[in-house]
Simulated scan of single mutants.
Amino acid sequence: MMEHKRSGRLAAGIVRFSQDGRWDQDVHRLLRYARHEAVVAVSNPANSLDHLRLGQVVVDDLLSAGKQVRLLYSPDYLELRDRRPLLRHSSRGAQIRVTDNDFHNALIIDRRVAVLWSGAGADHPYAYLVREPALLRALHQFALLSWQSGHGLTEPAETRVVLDDTARAVLNTLNLGLIDEAAARRLGVSLRTYRRHIAELMTRLEVRSRFQIGVRAAQLGLLDDIAGAPAAREF
């Protein structure tokens, strides 16, 4: 069950609970109680592949049960995601929109309960369970306005990224989890040169962090091209 940890004086009907290793499972358990509709708005997700996989499973379950599902995403969220599962959800009846509006990570179930949570990079991760009617109405109205401002999900054109030997070697060191100094020694280059290669790899893959390099490389199948490379990991 969800372990609520109160923090300060919160309004009636609002509970704060910690984002420990099980919190996303608790949230997805709430989704299974949806009677009619679930609205999922994700702008800045947590750096968790388990979180993403759980979300896909629960949406599949809701659609199989005949529930209405609305999925609202930010362009940043979709930038590094494989869209095939989302397109599959769309083909099964999920309504999906993408908006440039700023919005908070939120889940609204039947307009009876909502969860707000922080995303990757938050200094103090948090999640709020909301049952207060006035706030629920405001959250739903804001989600509706963001939904109306959005556009449909489109399937991106197939992209084939080809890396040279240097970029492949740098990607391999990241996949192995080596620290920069050890990776530079392994490649026989200076630390400054190694970090320049990483910056060039980010530019080549159109990402902004080392974690995103790993996600994007896995999506493009680049890790499969590295001979003898171990299974993909989060960088």
Rank of each mutant, 00 (worst) to 15 (best):
H4L: 14
H4G: 12
H4S: 07
K5C: 13
K5N: 10
A11I: 08
G13C: 09
R16Q: 13
Q19C: 06
D20E: 10
G21R: 15
D24L: 04
Q25N: 14
D26A: 06
L31R: 00
L31E: 01
L31N: 00
R32T: 13
Y33N: 13
R35S: 05
H36T: 13
V42Y: 02
S43G: 09
P45N: 12
S48Y: 05
L49C: 07
H51I: 06
L54P: 03
G55C: 07
Q56S: 08
V57N: 14
V57R: 10
V59T: 00
D61V: 07
D61E: 15
L62S: 04
L62G: 02
L62H: 04
L62C: 10
A65N: 12
G66M: 08
K67E: 00
K67M: 04
L72H: 01
S74T: 11
L78G: 15
L78Q: 15
E79D: 13
R83A: 08
R84T: 05
P85W: 01
P85S: 02
L86G: 01
H89I: 03
H89G: 02
S90E: 12
R92F: 05
G93C: 12
T99F: 06
D100T: 14
D100R: 09
D100G: 13
H104P: 03
N105F: 13
L107Y: 03
L107M: 09
I109Q: 00
D110S: 09
R112A: 14
V113E: 00
G119R: 02
A120W: 06
G121N: 08
Y126I: 09
Y128M: 11
Y128N: 15
V130S: 00
E132K: 02
E132F: 01
P133F: 07
P133D: 07
A134C: 06
L136G: 04
A138S: 14
L139Q: 08
L139I: 15
F142I: 15
W147Q: 02
W147K: 01
S149M: 07
L153G: 04
T154L: 12
E155T: 06
E158I: 11
T159W: 03
L163Y: 07
A167R: 02
R168A: 08
A169H: 03
A169T: 04
V170E: 00
N172C: 06
T173K: 12
N175K: 03
G177H: 01
L178M: 12
I179L: 13
A182I: 09
A183F: 01
A184W: 00
L187I: 15
S190Q: 15
L191S: 11
T193I: 09
T193N: 15
Y194I: 05
H197G: 04
E200M: 15
E206S: 14
V207A: 07
V207R: 02
V207K: 02
F211L: 08
I213W: 02
G214E: 06
G214C: 08
A218Q: 01
G221D: 09
L222H: 02
D224S: 07
I226N: 04
A227C: 08
G228Y: 09
A229V: 08
A229Q: 05
A231H: 12
R233F: 14
E234S: 09
